[in-house]
Design a protein around this nucleic acid. Sequence first.
DNA 1: TGAGTCTGATTGCAAATTGCAACTGGTTGC
DNA 2: GCAACCAGTTGCAATTTGCAATCAGACTCA
Lengths: 176, 176
Amino acid sequence: MTAEREESDTHRSGCPINLTLEVLGDKWSLIIVRDMMFGNRRHFRELLSQNEEGIASNILADRLRRLVAEGVISREDDPSHKQKAIYSLTEKGIELLPIFAMIGAWGRRWLPVTEALSIRAQLLEEGGPALWEEFMDELRQEHLGIPTKQRPGPGVRERLYAAYQEVAARQPSAQL
Amino acid sequence: MTAEREESDTHRSGCPINLTLEVLGDKWSLIIVRDMMFGNRRHFRELLSQNEEGIASNILADRLRRLVAEGVISREDDPSHKQKAIYSLTEKGIELLPIFAMIGAWGRRWLPVTEALSIRAQLLEEGGPALWEEFMDELRQEHLGIPTKQRPGPGVRERLYAAYQEVAARQPSAQL
DNA sequence: TGAGTCTGATTGCAAATTGCAACTGGTTGC
DNA sequence: GCAACCAGTTGCAATTTGCAATCAGACTCA
């Protein structure tokens, strides 16, 4: 399994849509990035056991390896815990946010989503590019350590999560 | 192989991102929609033999079946040719355009795209939502037969194709 | 009428990927 | 010292993919 393939390798074509699908075109990669981005999961066990869709540990390990190789996320040791790994989004990964916003909007419109799990997508859609930028800045601070303009009040993820909690509380029977 | 699954079926979760991935999360489905949308391919043979990435006929047949079942495209008989099928985008399929625009922008920024094959993505990015709407109107007219506001001059797809041709002509060695 | 072509696929088969459950070797906190 | 926790690995069956060959029913032209 060759790890790095930076430029001209065996690509099906040089089309941006095709190349993106070669990196992210499967049923799990974007799920993992979603959990890191919106759920703030940074460790293997968090990603494994808190995942809504029930990802298997071998698939998770494989996808994390691939995403690191593709430069969408990075992996480093946790200084406080000798065999604990911390996964972080790279800038390349953070900039997937607009794609998530669009995918969320489409899914919300055309697929049988549950209300609780789609409230975040709705807020992201309504917030538009300005909100996306704010969230991406927040992610850059958390994942890349880049200090950005301080904004008052709770962060974007926090607000999204609060909205989710509110809806979920109203519908105790629904899936968490 | 059960065909229809409209509402509550065996979904991994009700998250809009997950549900979208369940429909489109593989390496070929979006490629086919892309060819229909930007390449104006409407028949099996066109999709098969003009495809840039070399899709196999069994995969194409399977994905067309799935996309029809999911309501992203529709299939009807060609009246002029008894065993010829015409595939059309549905409104659900047409509204994938903003996702393509975002994916194209991300791929262009982060992956080793070729200039000729990414010029369309660039124009779509620069044109913004106004251009997307114009293109979607054009697609509604072509695929759904919905008459829309007449606009003067060549259509969006035509303009995108012309730009591609111009770049490709400048670089005869590059992939078509 | 019959040969050749075009149509949307299907078939057979090897290789790769997925999903599931059990397990591993090491670390940490008590 | 020991239970709990950590990031994965391993083995295996089932499914999916990729590839090439093939198919049967229209159409085309002579």
